[in-house]
């Protein structure tokens, strides 16, 4: 589904990703772990198409298509989703309006008619249950006045509404208490099917108690330095990242 080959990315002339490669197939969950400043969030942003990054070499194929040639909104319409580490607040735009626009843009890209209002409302109610959102959520402005936990739950809720093929969770666990963590992880597990895939970016092993990855990658200094199964995460928790520091 996704192939990243020898990706080099710079910001303002400073190289952040230094030969990053990764292959992801349908149905897989990949965890990417590593200390601060190794380029984990950069990877998420580059995949999603955020401006301000210079791709100096390498390629990214998404279902065989050159991802780097697509605009950010086109990537999203093709089923790539980024759950933000810091979701922004959008005053004056209700969650319902925001998601209706998002769902309809996706449908338009697939050649479908806009969703019927009744059907949309039903879908919202169903997915809201998944992340235990309160009813007044629909009419509230996107993320405005939300607590940290609510914002992260909203990311998972949006993911549920858009049903992406590939979802990247960028430190979705950071700043969450144990209840919120359980709700978020539970949402992800329910959405996981043999047809989609997840990249879970995290600092800590904690989230991986709830979301069990097929692969764990250790990222260090802009590339993957070690790959293993879920036990690698436990090992990291015990020994820390120091073992990867370059001599």
């Amino acid at each position: 589904m996704l192939q990243i080959k020898n990706l080099h990315v710079s910001i303002d002339g400073r190289e952040i990703l230094k030969g990053f490669s990764l292959e992801i197939n349908k149905g897989e969950i990949h965890a990417i772990m590593g200390p601060n400043g190794t380029g984990k969030s950069t990877l998420g942003n580059v995949l999603a198409g955020k401006d301000g990054y210079e791709i100096t070499s390498g390629e990214i194929l998404f279902n065989g298509e050159n991802l780097l040639e697509l605009e950010a909104h086109e990537r999203a319409q093709k089923g790539l989703f980024l759950a933000f580490q810091y979701p922004v607040e959008i005053p004056g735009v209700s969650n319902a309006n925001f998601l209706k626009a998002a769902v309809n843009e996706q449908r338009k890209a697939m050649g479908l008619e806009p969703i019927a209002p009744g059907e949309f409302l039903k879908m919202m109610r169903e997915k809201m249950e998944l992340v235990e959102m309160k009813k007044d959520f629909i009419s509230r402005s996107v993320n405005q006045g939300f607590s940290g936990g609510e914002k992260k739950r909203n990311e998972i809720f949006q993911m549920a509404m858009l049903n992406p093929q590939l979802a990247i969770l960028d430190e979705t666990d950071s700043g969450l208490d144990i209840d919120a963590l359980r709700i978020v992880a539970n949402g992800v597990n329910k959405l996981h099917t043999p047809e989609n895939a997840f990249i879970v970016i995290t600092h800590y092993q904690r989230l991986l108690d709830y979301i069990v990855p097929d692969f764990v990658h250790v990222m260090f200094d802009g590339k993957i330095v070690k790959t293993g199964d879920k036990n690698l995460a436990l090992e990291l928790e015990a020994k820390g990242y120091e073992q990867f520091e370059l001599a």
Partner: peptide, 11 residues
């Protein structure tokens, strides 16, 4: 803010 919209498929 704009990137947030775009990432949800809204130009």
């Amino acid at each position: 803010m704009l990137f947030y919209f775009q990432q949800r498929g809204i130009d």
